[in-house]
């Protein structure tokens, strides 16, 4: 029995270790608090250990774990009596202009990086987390749609609108500075 436990522990370690820091990064992007992110990942891992056999059968563990982290994030906020942020909420994007900007204008602006950095900083946390998970952490839109239980088309539209909003802010800032 003891050797069985040891084998399970080693198998769990081998499976989960490469994913712990990515899970922490995702949790931090969602919660914006390091201590909460650590607690969330601990909670996820404690739930995962009894599911080791299932985990071992999952072909694409990374997106599967993203889904688990996101579910735990929603539960985590509920326990804290905070409304979960909806990463795929179209209502929060109604005010976002979906128009083609003037890339020829903003691409030539040497302050572009600063302007874009400011615009990104002003994004609502859930929108920033969404584009971060997609563009920086490299999750495909299909993987994100699955994790957030959102239709793929809806998610694509949301990412498109977020980018449109940023482009518009850059274009507006460029025009106003001329």
């Amino acid at each position: 029995m003891l050797s069985g436990r040891k084998d399970r522990a080693q198998q769990f370690d081998a499976l989960i270790r490469p994913h712990v820091m990515p899970m922490y990064h995702t949790a931090y992007r969602l919660l914006r608090n390091a201590e909460d992110a650590e607690d969330l990942v601990q909670d996820v891992m404690t739930k995962l250990y009894p599911r080791l056999d299932d985990m071992a059968q999952v072909e694409a563990l990374r997106p599967w774990l993203l889904r688990v982290v996101y579910h735990s994030y929603v539960d985590f906020l509920r326990r804290l009596d905070r409304s979960p942020k909806t990463l795929a909420d179209e209502n929060s994007l109604h005010a976002v202009a979906d128009e083609t900007s003037r890339p020829d204008t903003w691409s030539e602006n040497e302050q572009l990086s600063s302007l874009l950095g400011d615009a990104v900083a002003r994004l609502p946390e859930e929108q920033r987390a969404l584009v971060d998970l997609h563009l920086v952490q490299g999750y495909t839109l299909q993987e994100l749609a699955s994790a957030f239980e959102t239709p793929l088309g809806t998610l694509k539209a949301q990412v498109h609108r977020i980018k449109g909003k940023l482009r518009k802010e850059l274009a507006d800032a460029t025009f106003s500075s001329v």
């Binding site: 522990a9 989960i16 650590e38 404690t46």
Partner: peptide
């Protein structure tokens, strides 16, 4: 590029080992 500047703070020292150990004990 811009999102990459938004750094995630490092977790406490021994974070990964502690989490795996705790998950193993509590999970068992």
């Amino acid at each position: 590029h811009e999102l990459g500047h938004d750094e995630v703070p490092e977790p406490r020292a021994g974070f990964v080992d502690d989490l795996i150990q705790t998950a193993t004990i509590q999970g068992e």
